[in-house]
């Protein structure tokens, strides 16, 4: 089903895994799409705080430019069929696909790479320089020999800490990729000047919904996220180490892409897309406020210490 970030007419019933109710969300017509595959936020997922309840999408983003298409991230295995189905729909014109998993060492970024390679035979996988070969994407599903052969037939193009991926026949859509200052593991962010979308991987993933039907885009008129929500999302999950940390450099680094670019949309790997200049500014400021407050918080050294919602 394709939507524009609005609720579906016939919401599917939630079930474990929610594997077959994905949305293809048209963010910018013919240019940028999200394959938004929902999962339950119920304490069983480590990238949301254990006490938060609701639903969130695991997102892959498809950037289309003429005969080229770039898929950023690959989604969860539990969503494999819906990811492939969404790509079937979006690549019906025979576009040449490339893949770019933004966090090469994490399941949610790379898990469906092998399945996508098998179905679409992409021309390249863009990957951080540390990736030595296709074995990084071989998560052990299906026939091993066939899977490895498919992966080995795919060119791996190494991406540096600051780089450009050119899309379109003339290479005119120059997508900027860079290592963000605010990261936990090896990570890239992507800025797409054509859509003014900033793809932020594991950051800005704090917006969740109350139903499995979404919608998976937050606009200014339905944003209910609070400062406390953002802080708790960061400190109780992947950014636990910010407690008591020195954050001046991180604040400057966070600000840099927002100052250098016009950002109309924040597109995280998980959680809702944040759309609209005003909303982008609000959410940027909320994350910056977490960084501003973090040095004064209790030190994070003991995982049993201090993990209580403020």
């Amino acid at each position: 089903m394709r939507t524009e970030g609005s609720p579906k007419a016939s919401p599917a019933q939630p079930r474990d895994g929610l594997g077959d109710i994905a949305d293809v969300v048209e963010l910018v017509p013919d240019t940028l799409y999200a394959l938004a595959n929902p999962y339950a936020v119920d304490g069983s997922v480590s990238w949301h705080p254990s006490d938060v309840r609701g639903y969130a999408p695991m997102n892959c983003y498809l950037l289309k430019e003429g005969s080229d298409a770039l898929l950023v991230d690959s989604g969860l295995p539990v969503h494999e069929r819906s990811v492939l189905r969404g790509l079937d729909e979006l690549l019906a014109g025979g576009e040449r696909l490339s893949l770019f998993p933004l966090r090469v060492g994490e399941f949610d970024s790379v898990c469906n790479v092998a399945a996508i390679v098998e179905r679409f035979a992409p021309q390249a996988i863009y990957a951080l320089g540390v990736v030595a070969g296709p074995g990084w994407f071989d998560l052990g599903r299906g026939d091993s020999a066939t899977r490895r052969a498919d992966l080995e037939a795919t060119e791996i193009r190494r991406v540096g800490a600051s780089d450009v991926i050119a899309l379109g026949a003339a290479g005119t859509r120059r997508v900027e990729v860079f290592e963000p200052a605010l990261r936990l593991l090896n990570t890239h962010w992507v800025y797409d000047p054509a859509t003014r979308a900033l793809l932020t991987s594991d950051m800005f993933g704090h917006a969740v919904r109350t139903t499995a039907a979404g919608p998976w885009v937050v606009d200014v008129d339905d944003d209910v996220t609070t400062q406390a929500d953002v802080e708790w999302h960061m400190l109780a999950t992947r950014y636990w180490w910010l407690r008591g940390a020195r954050t001046d450099e991180l604040r400057r680094g966070l600000a840099e892409p927002f100052e250098r670019h016009d950002v109309d949309m924040i597109a995280p790997a998980f959680g809702c897309v944040i759309r609209g200049r005003e909303l982008v500014a609000r959410h940027y400021l909320m994350v910056d406020e977490v960084l501003r407050r973090a040095p004064r918080l209790l030190d994070a050294v003991d995982p049993r210490d201090g993990l209580a919602r403020a």
Partner: peptide, 28 residues
């Protein structure tokens, strides 16, 4: 943890233990 799927399939009596959040999404 990248080999966990292959290991669970090879050793059907084995369980994955530890903080096992997320794996229901990784290992349908």
């Amino acid at each position: 943890a990248g080999g966990v799927g292959a290991l669970l399939r090879r050793y059907p009596d084995a369980e994955l233990c530890g903080d096992v959040r997320d794996y229901h999404l990784f290992l349908p």
